[in-house]
Each structure stands twice: as structure tokens, then as C-alpha cells.
Simulated scan of single mutants.
Amino acid sequence: MEFGPHLMLASLEGAVTSSILVLTAMGLSIVFGVMRVVNVAHGEFFMLGAIFAWAVSTTLGGHPAIGFAAALIIAPIFVGCIAATADRLILRRINYDVDRTIVATIGVLYIIQQSTLMLYGPEARPVEPPFNTRISLPWFEFGENGFEMFWPWGLSITSYKLFVIFAAAFVLFVLWGVLTRTKFGLIMRATQQDRDTAQAFGVPVGKVYSWVFGLGAGLAAFGAVLVVPIQQAHYLMGGDPLLLAFIVVIIGGLGSLPGTVIAALLIGMSDGLISVFFSPTLAKIIATFLVAMVLVFRPQGLMGKN
């Protein structure tokens, strides 16, 4: 395959990576933006989403689309409820102190991870995609006979990976609508701007924090449900999404949702391109280098406020 088609294929793989990454990082960014909490357990909520997706699809049986559709609804809700419960039982009791919340979420990380190991086991288990048709992609060139279209061998993508891209875009659109067009979004933004003033005007800040913490975990779980037909579910799969989500949030700007989207696209696309043409390890090295450059030259991130 020539360079052009190869680049197109790598770009599509990068778009799939960006789609999962933007959902995971968006959950982390919302939690920090509203609550000022660095959720170290965010990757484990991602992992729980994948585990619940496997459990739901296995329990329901039948056509893979039935279990997958149910998992898309059930897993984020379950994980969101677990996160909201953790907020009420742990984070609220330490008054969301910056240092203590980091230690507390590390504890939540190990509790979730080891509980999953005991109940689920160490095996990696697959979830069958609801559909997985191989779609051949055309390429265009200007040759001796003018404009020509042909189908290079190997230039293709599965219908499920295209679904992942569109599903992530749809969720982001719905999230934007909720944050900008609903009363809940207004309350979230008011709480983010000034917690004490919002509380003085009757906003139940404690409940808002629980909902926000649950929403952040639910977004990560939704991303995990989308990715688990591509990657197998296992109890240690939360580490890489957590690292990449932190990289995205730092580059985009802590608490900046537009910055999170831009940084997720930047990191996801570069990860896909570099992984295909060079190596996945080099992609992680470059991502870490970008974080270092942002911290040195623009500590507030690409779209963060000074």
C-alpha cells in the first residue's frame, strides 16, 4: 500500500482512539472543573464499565447487539451510581480537601481494582461487537488518464469502528446540550464559578457534586463499553486510559471542556499515526514530551485560564 492510503488508514485508527479518549478525559475534566477534585480512580471507573459490559452481554445472551445495547445503558448508570456513592461516603466526609482527595481516590482505586480481581478474576475476556462488517475504502489519484478512483488492498475499516466515532460525537453533542441548555447545566456552571454563592442561593452543592462525580465516571464507563469489543476487558485495563486522560486534561487546560476535546483529538490522532508508522512506545514518549512543553511554556494549558 502506498503512503497516502496508509496515512488515511492510520488517521481512521487515530480517530477511533480519539473518540474513546475524549469521553474518558471529558469525565475527568468535568469532575475537576466543578469539584476541583483530581480523581485518581477515574481509570478504574473506566475498567468497571468494560467489566459490566462483559457481564451484561454475557448474562443476556442472544444476538450480540442486544447485550451491547443494554450494556451501553446499564454500565454507565451502574458505574455512575458507584462513583456517586464513593463521593457521599468518602469525599464529602473529608470536605473535598485537595491533598486528602488524592489519597482517598487512590484508596478507591485499589478497592475497586482488588474487588474486581476477586469477583471477576485475572482473565481478559472479549465482548462480541454488535456488528463488524469490513468496509473497503476507496483512494483517489490523478494519473495519466486524469482523476482515478481505486480500492487498495488492505485499505478498510470495520463498521463498528465507524460507529464508535459517531457514537462519541453524539454523546459529546448531548453533553454540550445538557451543560448549556438545561437547568442542571446552569447549576453545574454556577457551582463551578462560586460554590459558596451558589449554596447561598439554595443550590444543593453536595448533591451537585455527587451527580457530577457520577457523570464523570459514567462518561468513562461509556467509553469503556465502546472500546471493549475492540480490546478485551480485564481488571488492569484502567491504567493507560487514566494516564492518557491526565495528559489530555493537562494539555487542554484543567477544567476546560473545549480544550479537552482539542487535546484529545491531538493526542489520539498522533497516537494513531505514530503507532502505525513507528511504534506505540514512541507515541507515549511524544505525548509525555508535549505535557512537559505545555507545563513549561503554558502551564494553564491550551485553553485554560490564567
Rank of each mutant, 00 (worst) to 15 (best):
P280Q: 11
I73C: 12
L109T: 14
R189N: 11
L257D: 06
W153P: 00
M149H: 03
L243R: 08
V31L: 05
L162H: 04
T288C: 10
A70W: 03
V212I: 15
H6S: 12
I187V: 15
A263E: 07
F68R: 12
A65S: 11
A245Q: 06
G218M: 05
P204K: 13
G61V: 06
I165A: 08
F78R: 00
D240S: 12
V174K: 04
M1F: 09
G252L: 01
G259C: 07
L155Y: 02
W151K: 09
T17N: 09
S210H: 03
S136W: 06
L290N: 07
F68M: 14
W153V: 11
F150Q: 05
T288K: 01
A217E: 09
L9K: 14
Q232Y: 12
Q192Y: 00
I157R: 15
W151L: 11
F131R: 07
F142A: 13
P299L: 06
I66T: 12
L60F: 10
I251C: 03
A220V: 02
G121L: 07
F184Q: 01
V79G: 03
G301I: 08
L162S: 02
N95E: 09
N306D: 13
G252H: 02
R100M: 12
F147K: 03
V34H: 09
F78M: 14
F173I: 14
A53R: 00
G214Q: 07
R36D: 06
P138V: 03
F68P: 04
V79F: 11
I20R: 03
A233G: 08
V38L: 14
I73L: 15
I262R: 00
V228L: 02
T260V: 09
T105C: 05
I112Y: 07
F163M: 09
F131M: 08
F131Y: 08
P76M: 11
A124T: 07
R195H: 03
V208D: 04
N145F: 09
